[in-house]
Design a binder for these strands. Structure first.
Lengths: 204, 204
DNA sequence: CCACCAACATTCATCACTGTATGTATCTTG
DNA sequence: CAAGATACATACAGTGATGAATGTTGGTGG
């Protein structure tokens, strides 16, 4: 039954595909390795060859997708970007999510199909790290934008504005996925984001 | 071992308390009825006397808490409320959540400690119903507010504004719970909500 | 005051899942 | 072309959870 390297790689992908589908449909905890193996057309032996256990398999499945939060990783450029650039980046992230089905499935799994506790906790490290990066980037931008101008409605609480912005974007993504695309993510998102950033845009 | 009615009711509450704590700490799927019984100081027999199974127990545990979304149930009053009233109701809901620890735990369980699939699906009916009520109430208010005035920045897409508002509030609650109260819910919430509603307030 | 039933505890049978150990056939490398 | 490593399949033991069946004791209605 020995397969060539290429075939083995395909087997691995097939396992990850089956896991992604079953995790999405039935939840992570409710899906057994036997079910995954059957759905992929093989036995548990194949899974234990390619992965240590379920958590390891889960991690690798998540790693195949690009998370929308990762659009906010700063390119290690000079200065904190402007609020306008932040809005553009945000809308890019939304548009990307709306266009990529794998990301939609993986994000849905991460948010509604698994429990953030116990052995699964380390498997969530990537998402939490991406969230954290996004959060600090947003805070930096609003801090910078509000410290530069003396006039304005409120200049003291850039942190509150940044927190609100982050929550709004997070809620947007969450509700869009939960509602099964009940509204236009980019349209509603653009409108919401512009309302939030309107007071803090430099030029016209 | 026969207990009086009052003692039996206390036993029932003790089981629900233990379930709430263990679900919160370890997740719903990862918590067994044996663990719950042990934490409550009794055996599985007691649980099977008071509840049909785990899903039934879960439902009753959720039912002990008042969900913040339920603050939006319209009091069957005359007309759709104003945007200002909506803001006040929203902040009330946030303040209530921030003040009630049981609601915080139950909401956290509902959002991060269980999988929204399979046999658990019917147990989520209450939360989804509350969400839906909140969503339509918000849509009604913005529809009414924007149809009444001919002038304004945009009057066509009240739906998009309502969706954005709902997402923002939802994200606010979600991130506050996930971050373990990393920011002031009522402060950040008030600021965010007022920004979103500023364009749609009637009077000064 | 006694029979009965509520409120549990205990026991049992069953099953599904995990992890590992072993088998095996095929590719691959010297 | 032989020998070993690879890529699985199969078999096994162990664990723990569920649900039901049964046991037990003490409140409670008649």
């Amino acid at each position: 039954m020995r397969r060539t390297k290429c075939e083995a790689a395909q087997t691995r992908e097939a396992i990850l595909d089956a896991a992604e589908t079953l995790f999405f449909e039935n939840g992570v905890a409710a899906t057994s390795l036997s079910q995954i193996a059957a759905a992929a057309g093989m036995t548990r032996g194949a899974i234990y060859w390619h992965f240590e256990n379920k958590v390891d398999l889960f991690k690798d499945m998540v790693d195949r997708a690009r998370l929308p939060q990762e659009a906010f990783f700063h390119d290690s450029r000079h200065e904190p970007a402007s609020v306008r650039e932040l809005c553009e980046k945000t809308i890019e992230a939304l548009a990307f999510l709306a266009s990529d089905e794998r990301t939609q499935r993986v994000m849905t799994i991460l948010m509604f199909r698994c429990e953030y506790v116990g052995e699964m906790q380390p498997a969530m490290a990537r998402r939490e790290s991406a969230d954290e990066h996004m959060r600090v980037e947003i805070a930096r931008i609003f801090d910078h934008a509000l410290s530069n101008r003396a006039t304005g409605p409120k200049q003291c609480d850039a942190r509150a504005i940044a927190s609100g912005y982050f929550c709004a974007v997070s809620g947007l993504i969450t509700e869009w996925l939960k509602s099964d695309h009940a509204f236009d993510l980019v349209n509603v998102g653009s409108q919401l984001i512009e309302t939030l950033a309107a007071d803090h845009l430099e030029g016209a």
